[in-house]
Write a protein that binds this DNA or RNA. Structure first.
Length: 893
DNA sequence: AAATAGCATGGTG
DNA sequence: CCACCATGCTATT
């Protein structure tokens, strides 16, 4: 594989002889590397090769940011810059900075990951591509024979690591990037992916030939790997890396962006990233593409690992795994143990893509013994094999029982696979499902400094939060942090397909819909962070360095002087305060934050908005709102309840409540919740316990739930009031009166009792729905105009990127679901008179909605047409928030 | 009879 | 419609 049989330095400008051990420079089109003399290598290594030898060559451009000259027309510097969407280039140093100091070391280090290029690449032949890519994509340098089962395992083991090359860097990126890729972009991505695959295929073949070992298994050989992973410092410094090593690419080191250390965690602020995507979506998509590109070229363009397998390591975990700080851990993938996996059989089913991408290729079902080291340093040898299945394969690791037991893992826990560099060892780690990922909790407390836990980051980056609603990106942004965690738990909680299936069958279905605008309206910059505003496609987006959180909605209106203003409600006293239109509120806004109006910067100050006015602003809820506000003023309990609702509102959405203060330990309710957490989840008694909620129940839980929905709806109202204030006022007022809140009173608090609504009410509800529908559609052009909260937990993960909305929804859903479940449990437990059999009612997720089977009735009062939004009815009213409780709740639990 | 190995099935995306 | 994969089921040890 020498780039040359020549003994002189590859650099034509240099006449020196190569040393005994020529240094590998950039990757050549042939896949080999330019072998340089020490001097040239040094120049290359330091990123000044072109400056030294190509000063007179063409292709120099200046970095748009720092002005530094970059030799864009040269393969040597191909990774030293990035193409900017608007045109121009940026040196990687700046690119890196501009990308939020990318906490994610995995940030694309080569221009190949950037959209502009990606686009171009589409038209490039494979050959050209590889050329361009330079050392970018490094084919899987496998030595087929090494994996031949006939080979002594000992040898295999020592070498496997090197063979198991993975584009982890890309994966890492993925985690943070993918989320933001819109569905459209995703499409592109896939296309590109396919192209990459083709490329890989070609390269793989090349490699095979190169190796001179046609091997017995073509299939395996065809699998090449895009080694886009960053070069680790250690690797860089180790020119002696085996030739067949996956990391030979100098290009990687070449980039000034070299990554080092044990990084991994895309701590990238989601929001920021998200924006980044919006602004140059192609770029992100390109990243995605690359990352998605899997080593295995099965020409299907589906070579991406499912999000659920994306490694979600935290720095800590990584460090723990590596133990040695000098080692770099490359997360490969992770998998939640299924019942089967954790069972006695001792077979761990490996995701096919993962197996093919990260484990040595095997052609025989018998596979190979694979040596894996656990986080404690103990080595295990598993048989990595496969079963023919249909026309495919099912990969399994056999003999994992001892290891699983050693780690005390069980179904639901997550095992992680990484590679320890430079040794190339496969390392197996784990995360217990029962407890929040070590990283989670620890990070939450340890990293309090920035208020964003690594977990959050991880979660944010969690592709699982992609949702169909990716277009509502903004929201997605939000939900990221909290939601994904939950979703992941659920989804991945593949605690055995049985439970999974049961759950799905019996689980209540919750459908929550709101427009992205509405959801957006609830977003708040994380504490201590000042968001910046960017305008994208005419829409303003707040950009947060950290994951945003949800806050109370504000109401936009036009002041008496015609100026644009917004009304914000103090979260302490619930008084409404007038603020500038562009005021950006913190997560929890209170009167004391009212810097715009000193006279009303205290809760004691009167509200300069009459109830009537407020009603105008909040047409449909006004009645409710005002009533509640009044009540709140008089009744301390109510206030408390409202507060709880607030919390719930946020929580329901945030689910795990990223913004909740983290105290000592998690409650039993949810790992992410801490004692004192007042979220709906935590304030409820354990399933089946505690009093049953009546319609008139005013406990925190019930109130919270009620309020939560109300809160969600308010946003929508605001919009309407702005546009249709005049024309609809009358109608709205009528509605306000008609639409009774009483539904909320239903038996189970949140819930709504079935059939409680009168015909009139129903009618109103429906009208509102329609209204909302229209409104929404017209008001949210670039996006679908709605966020489908009704995301199937199991699917979310794979939904299109870019939408946190999904996660947000998920959060909400999750919270609600929990509530519903508990409701069910309590009722089924029969400890208290459960109204009828919910299970019976359930049967009909039916329609409408006013009735939630489990007695959870969301008052249509919220104007949130709970239920009327039928998803059954096919009325996809975005503004609707409906909760469907499906039937039988055979408590799976 | 129990454990294991491997194939088949069927839910899910 | 297809691929994936969790698990069932059965043959084998």
């Amino acid at each position: 594989m020498s780039s040359s049989s020549s003994k002189v330095c590859y650099n034509s400008e240099c006449k020196e002889l190569k040393s005994e051990h020529p240094r590998k420079g950039w990757r050549l089109r042939t896949g080999e590397y330019a072998e340089l003399c020490d001097r040239c290598y040094l120049a290359y290594e330091e990123g000044r090769f072109c400056e030294t030898f190509h000063m007179n060559a063409a292709g120099w451009r200046c970095c748009e940011s720092c002005g530094k000259r970059v030799h864009c027309g040269c393969i040597v510097s191909s990774q030293a810059f990035t193409l900017l969407d608007p045109g121009g280039v940026e040196c990687m140093t700046c690119a890196r900075k501009n990308f939020v100091l990318t906490p994610n070391p995995a940030w694309p280090t080569s221009m190949f990951f950037h959209s502009p290029l990606s686009e171009r690449l589409k038209d490039l032949s494979v050959k050209n591509w590889t050329h361009l890519a330079g050392s970018g994509p490094v084919p899987w340098r496998q030595a087929p024979s090494l994996f031949n089962s006939s080979i002594p395992s000992s040898e295999l083991h020592t070498r496997v690591p090197y063979e198991v090359d993975v584009s982890t860097g890309i994966n890492k990126l993925n985690a943070s990037e993918r989320i933001f890729v819109s569905s459209m972009e995703k499409k592109k991505v896939e296309d590109f992916s396919e192209r990459l695959m083709k490329v890989n295929l070609t390269m793989g073949t090349q490699e095979s030939l190169e190796n001179g070992k046609p091997g017995n298994n073509r299939e395996e050989q065809s699998s090449s790997c895009l080694n886009i992973s960053q070069q680790s410092a250690s690797l860089k410094e180790d020119p002696s890396t085996p030739q067949f090593g996956p990391y030979g690419s100098v290009s990687e080191t070449n980039a000034q962006v070299g990554v080092t250390g044990t990084h991994l965690r895309p701590t990238l602020p989601l929001a920021k990233q998200f924006n980044g995507n919006l602004q140059n979506g192609v770029e992100s998509s390109a990243d995605t593409q690359i990352r998605n590109a899997r080593p295995r070229a099965d020409a299907r363009g589906r070579n991406q690992l499912l999000p659920r397998y994306w490694p979600r390591f935290t720095d800590q975990e990584l460090q723990q795994i590596s133990g040695d700080k000098n080692s770099v851990i490359t997360p490969l993938f992770e998998k939640m143990l299924s019942a089967s996996d954790a069972g006695r059989i001792g077979r761990l089913v490996l995701p096919k893509k993962c197996a093919e991408a990260y484990f040595p290729p095997i052609s025989q079902p018998e596979g190979l013994p694979l040596k894996v080291q656990d986080s404690k340093g103990k080595e295990w040898v598993f048989q990595f094999r496969f079963w023919p299945n249909n026309n495919s394969r099912m990969y399994v690791l056999e003999g994992v029982t001892p290891c699983i037991q050693s780690m005390q893992l069980q179904a639901g826990d997550i095992v992680t696979f990484s590679r320890l560099e430079p040794e190339g060892k496969l390392v197996m780690g784990f995360r217990k499902a029962s407890t929040a990922p070590p990283s989670d909790q620890e990070n939450e407390t340890n990293k309090a400094s920035n208020g964003v836990s690594a977990l959050a980051d991880a979660e944010l980056a969690d592709p699982s939060s992609w949702s169909k609603v990716d277009k509502s990106g903004y929201i997605a942004k939000e939900a990221l942090g909290s939601k994904s965690l939950i979703s992941r738990k659920r989804k991945n909680s593949t605690l055995g397909s049985k439970s999974k299936r049961l759950r799905i069958e019996n689980e209540d279905l919750i459908e929550l819909k709101l427009t992205w605008e509405e959801a957006q309206g609830l977003l708040r910059a994380p504490a201590n962070h000042i968001p910046t505003v960017v305008v994208i496609e005419g829409f303003e987006f707040e950009e947060y360095e950290d994951s945003p959180i949800l806050g109370m909605p504000t109401i936009y209106a036009t002041g008496s002087a015609g100026e644009k203003i917004q009304w914000a409600q103090c979260e302490d006293c619930f008084k409404w305060r007038k603020l500038p239109m562009n005021a950006l509120l913190p997560s929890k806004w209170t009167c004391s934050d009212n810097s715009w109006d000193p006279e009303r910067s205290s809760c004691s100050a009167a509200q300069d908005l009459t109830t009537e006015q407020l009603e105008d602003l909040l047409p449909s809820h006004s009645t409710v709102t005002s009533k509640k506000m009044k009540a709140a003023k008089q009744d301390p309990d109510n206030i408390e309840a409202l507060e709880g609702l607030d919390t719930l509102a946020n929580l329901a959405i945030l689910g795990e409540g990223e913004s909740l203060p983290a105290s000592a330990q998690a409650t039993t309710k949810h790992p992410r919740h801490r004692p004192g957490c007042s979220c709906i989840v935590c304030i409820q008694p354990p399933s089946g316990k505690g009093p049953k909620h009546k319609q008139t129940c005013t406990c925190n839980v019930c109130l919270t739930v009620k309020r939560r929905f109300r809160t969600l709806m308010m946003r929508r109202e605001k919009k309407q009031s702005e546009k249709e204030a005049e024309s609809t006022r009358k109608k709205q007022q009528q509605q306000q009166q008609l639409v009774v809140i009483d539904k909320l009173d239903d038996d189970t608090s949140i819930c709504c009792n079935t059939g409680s609504s009168s015909p009139n009410q129903k009618k109103e509800v429906l009208e509102l729905s329609d209204d909302d529908l229209n409104r929404t559609k017209s008001s949210t052009p670039p996006f679908k105009g709605q966020i489908d909260l009704n995301i199937q937990p199991e699917r979310e993960e794979e939904l299109s990127p870019g939408s946190d909305s999904g996660s947000m929804m998920k959060l909400l859903q999750d919270a609600t679901e929990r509530y519903l479940k508990q409701q069910r449990l309590s009722s089924s437990g029969g400890s208290e008179n459960s109204p009828g059999n919910r299970s019976q009612q359930v049967g009909g997720e039916a329609g409408g909605g006013e009735s939630l089977s489990n007695g959870v009735t969301l008052g249509s009062s919220n104007h949130v047409t709970l239920g009327s939004s039928n998803h059954d009815g096919g009325n996809d009213c975005p503004a609707t928030l409906s909760i469907k409780a499906s039937a039988s709740m055979t408590a799976t639990g």
